[in-house]
Design a protein around this nucleic acid. Sequence first.
DNA 1: CCATACTATATGCAAATACCTATAGTCGTA
DNA 2: TACGACTATAGGTATTTGCATATAGTATGG
Lengths: 188, 188
Amino acid sequence: MSLPHMIMGLLTWNSFTGYDLNKLFQQTVQYFWWTEQSQIYRALHRMERDGWVNVETIIQQDNPNRKVYHLTETGRAELLRWLAEPHHEDHPHEVWVGKLFFSHLLPNEDLIHLFEIRLAQTEGLLSGLEERQAFVNGLTHESERSAILQKMTVGYGVEMLRAERDWMRRQLDILRGMPDQPDSNPHS
Amino acid sequence: MSLPHMIMGLLTWNSFTGYDLNKLFQQTVQYFWWTEQSQIYRALHRMERDGWVNVETIIQQDNPNRKVYHLTETGRAELLRWLAEPHHEDHPHEVWVGKLFFSHLLPNEDLIHLFEIRLAQTEGLLSGLEERQAFVNGLTHESERSAILQKMTVGYGVEMLRAERDWMRRQLDILRGMPDQPDSNPHS
DNA sequence: CCATACTATATGCAAATACCTATAGTCGTA
DNA sequence: TACGACTATAGGTATTTGCATATAGTATGG
């Protein structure tokens, strides 16, 4: 429910079209807030309805017309309100933990395989984010504060992924030494 | 999209009513998979339609009738399929990181306040989970494998929350030494 | 010359989610 | 005796999400 606010965050950088925003999302926001291209357009419509943005249509010959979105004062106020509002954590929906919780039903072999795949995924995400971190750390020309916060954000992701990776490596070691029978009914 | 599988996981422990499942969820699953009471009933209806569970109605005098749900062989097979299936990570939607990313618009004071609140929340979650960990670690009478995996799951949560808490404490120290002006337009 | 990719906007639709409300009897307590 | 809590199930509904698809011209490469 905060896609509009993410978009407004980007619109404080500059005015953009839905198309631009989609590309920007993929480059900078996607690693913590994934979204579908179609949702960006739908969000922009809602935001226009609510007076958070207004539209300037630019006629083009070669390509489809561009609808450039500008943040309004109302939108900016809403963004600041949202930013300063005490954040209430979302309800957790961690599928991976859920699987783990009930994996006593699996033979050890399968469970270890699951961990290995997950570990590889985490390592992949981590190296991608570390690349991004190297890039962001080079943003010395950017305004002080914005750069610091971008570094912080990426750093957060890197830290969490490292913690996860380390934890999974340790668990894999434990699992490889575990007895083999899956429980069919652990509470009987 | 995995609520039915979480429910089936619980139904491998025993047969339960929607009412029982809701209470069990709050005790054991809620910290990694939050759900509404009404969704449990709706999920059970879907699962019955799909043949994953079947129902036994128990007539009661004093209280409303109980509808006890049993896991079918089809349901059990689906659960095992889901558990063994390579887990594809969900699309990220981390509101907190998003806020942080765009918080250069806030004065330092507000930003620090946000961090303090978030830190307090994390510490609250952590101490709650540590209590649960103490309880789960006492489950020696439980079947070996199930107990190990429950401990692992809770341990995962505790580890991640600790990493988050430590990271936030470090950032708070940095923030308290930061220059004070918010950017109105960092890319101008 | 054909296929693919890029620019650019948008709708259709099934499913899931969160939040609220309905129903209705029993039991404890203030 | 009135109020709230517990047992037990369930529907209404707005909103969001993910995935697929439509449209249509230009440019690029094999």
